[in-house]
Design a protein around this nucleic acid. Structure first.
Lengths: 234, 234
DNA sequence: CGTCTCATTGACACCCTTCAAACGAAGTGG
DNA sequence: CCACTTCGTTTGAAGGGTGTCAATGAGACG
């Protein structure tokens, strides 16, 4: 949405730097990035809340791994309807693309830091190192698996089931056994689950009325009855 | 895209053979499999209409490539709701899994032939041959791309837009410029698009009434006004 | 011709969306 | 410290798009 590029840093890596807000404190900012689990060096970057990390149609020169914070990837239709493909938590990789360009956009849900890993470097490495290639494939397959589950949710589940699935998924990924601190807004949840913000809100309070969850605040969810949630989520 | 079928075929592995109907005519039924574009030998198999190729939960020992016919992969909920993940045409690869087991089921939409390629062989090959690994990754990324587009359709498009998108997609993949011979039933289309069979049927006739398509028979669709379709599909 | 399967059409209900307003929390300035 | 604004969330009322249930129609096959 609003990518403020620092004039100082932009000179170094013009196309790759987001806002430098959080990165300012980071020590080794002028050298190479940290070596990713994939075995390739990357460039560390920071983004403010709602800042765009990359946009649909831009050349996909890098894949990204979340270090801190939460990221969303999404596609939008001409009239503004948005479908969030997924939320990415620390450790997760996003921005995997089949073609040369990004076919989804990515934004920071919260202030966050990510490593951008050049595809060219990655390809080079993967070509010679079978284990690295396998890791990359495993990541992609995992994404595919999640996508297919998401499709089932979007195509065949009702609002209540969708939300139950979402909350359970978040509680597994956060991970905090039965107290989930949602990093995203109701609008994000709605666009992730193929619903409207009103339906998400209504369904949340319904689950609370049924004593399945509890909402101390709108970002905090206590999973009171996980069995019921699992039952709903199928 | 289209894999050419070698006349030489398939070792006899009882556990892996579907119906032998179509295979019966094949001559070299006891030899090695044909070399797949991925560079690994596979076992050729044939399946009759609606026959299961693999089921959710079964060990995923192989990935599959369609040689002839059409395949669907899907997931089902406990109460029978089904979401078809995709249809696979000749040349397409399906059965890519992140874990050890299949998390989707696969069935023959029409009588079909597929090659089953052992994951162990593939992994072995990919470990030493960087180009093979890259091909496999590209296939998986392509699947991911389609999944994410499908998610947008399921989460954010109405019945008319979904059907328009589906028909255009089929017309590209078949490929017959503006006469599409649908290989699948209305129920399959419904379960692919997250609709009911009745809604699919009604929407089809609505598109016909609007002179956007024409339905000589229920399996044959003439795309009269592709511009209108593209407009609907976004 | 009868049967079976699949597709189409109709009537009605309901879940979710839309539109609108009220509410609450957080931040700002007086 | 308290108005005031702003943003996000919740709640309400009404309407519409799809689903559900049921009946009819159309091919395929024996």
């Amino acid at each position: 949405m609003h990518a403020e590029v620092s004039p100082v840093v932009a000179a170094v890596w013009p196309a790759e730097i987001g806002s430098i807000r959080s990165i300012a404190g980071a020590p080794g900012f002028a050298g190479m990035g940290s070596a990713d689990p994939l075995g390739v060096d990357g460039v560390r970057m920071a983004y403010g809340r709602n800042e765009e990390i990359f946009g649909e149609g831009e050349p996909a020169a890098s894949i990204h791994r979340v270090l801190k914070g939460v990221v969303r990837t999404y596609r939008i239709l001409a009239d503004g309807r948005r479908q969030i493909a997924d939320f990415f938590l620390p450790g997760d990789v996003f921005g995997l693309e089949a073609g040369l360009d990004h076919c989804t956009s990515a934004e920071a849900v919260t202030d966050c830091e990510v490593v951008a890993i050049r595809r060219s470097h990655l390809a080079e490495r993967a070509m010679s190192d079978g284990a690295a290639a396998q890791k990359l494939l495993a990541l992609t397959l995992h994404r595919l698996h999640r996508s297919e589950e998401h499709m089932l949710v979007l195509g065949r589940k009702n609002a209540c089931e969708r939300l139950a699935w979402f909350l359970l998924d978040m509680s597994v990924r956060i991970p905090a056994p039965d107290r989930v601190e949602l990093p995203m807004s109701r609008q994000d949840i709605a666009d992730f689950l193929g619903l409207t913000i009103e339906t998400v809100s209504r369904t949340m309070t319904q689950l609370q009325d049924d004593e399945i969850i509890e909402l101390p605040s709108c970002r905090q969810v206590l999973l009171r009855d996980k069995t019921a949630l699992l039952d709903l989520a199928n």
